[in-house]
Design a protein around this nucleic acid. Structure first.
Length: 272
DNA sequence: ATGGCAGTTCCTAACTGA
């Protein structure tokens, strides 16, 4: 059985609703992870997506951030934010920003993340991003090893990471040492996560640069392919072995009034 | 060094994003 799981930062689900429904009709994935929904839960446009046959789990807030998971069958063991997993002390105030949602689909623990942007190197938001990663690290360690959570050694982390891990993930890495999304500290923070035992699904199939998932709205960046690859699928070894494709669908970025990100899809060949 | 574009709200200005 082939499972298709996609991630897409839609930059407002209400503004992008027609793009998402059209895309799902043409790309009936099993699971779609959304970021930057930018809407409180009571105003989330549920019915338009449920009418397409999807179950929804949402974790939103007003104006900013917000994550959601759409799935063909209901998720199990759903958890919103850091606190239910790591506890209130470690979570501090990090759940004030709705950036983390997880659930189990077909035995796979799916973790959908909207990583903080970081604004600029050295800024308060940049420090927040790095501290956020420390909490994420503890969160994932618990998901991997908790004796109380449902057994799920298979974990897929996806979402908008706001980090380009390698220079080939940036159209022009000149000066990247001081550029947010590419600084050494951010890359090290992401590496520490991967060192828990995750591999980049996209790089199983594509080794060269020039493949991006986000293009700035300004300066005709998309037309000139001046992009960054910052939306990722990271897999535990068993899932990495089962991955048969990982693709970036640039089509939605070409539409009128697009999100600045475009979907990334991973296909897994799993045993029933 | 800056802005460039887009979405949101305390909505025609200010913020956040990346």
């Amino acid at each position: 059985m082939t499972l298709k799981i996609a991630t897409w930062n839609v930059n407002s689900i209400r503004t992008r609703l027609s793009h998402v429904t059209t895309w799902l009709q043409e790309n009936p994935v099993d699971v779609l992870c959304l970021q930057e929904t930018k809407v409180i839960d009571q105003d989330f446009p549920r019915s338009s997506l449920e009418d397409l046959g999807y179950h929804l789990e949402i974790f939103g807030q007003k104006s900013y951030n917000g994550v959601a998971i759409l799935s063909r069958t209901p998720l199990q063991s759903v958890s919103l934010g850091f606190a239910p997993i790591v506890g209130a002390t470690l979570a501090e105030d990090f759940d004030d920003q709705k950036r983390v949602i997880t659930g189990i689909y077909a035995g796979i623990r799916i973790v959908n993340l909207y990583v903080p942007n970081g604004s600029a190197m050295g800024s308060e938001k940049y420090e927040y991003k790095l501290r956020w990663f420390k909490v994420l690290y503890e969160y994932l360690k618990i998901l991997q090893h908790s004796p109380v959570l449902p057994a799920s050694p298979s974990i897929l982390i996806c979402g908008d990471f706001n980090i380009a891990l390698e220079d080939i993930d940036i159209h022009d890495p000149t000066g990247r040492e001081k550029q947010v999304m590419a600084t050494d500290a951010e890359r090290l923070a992401l590496r520490s996560i991967l060192d828990l035992g995750f591999q980049d699904a996209f790089r199983k199939f594509t080794l060269e640069g020039g493949h991006f998932s986000w293009w700035d709205y300004r300066a005709a960046a998309f037309r000139r392919n001046l992009g960054w690859r910052i939306d990722h699928h990271y897999l535990t070894p068993d899932l990495y072995e089962q991955a048969i494709a990982c693709t970036i669908d640039k089509a939605p970025r070409s539409l009128e009034q697009p999100s600045d990100h475009t979907p990334v899809i991973v296909e897994l060949e799993v045993k029933l």
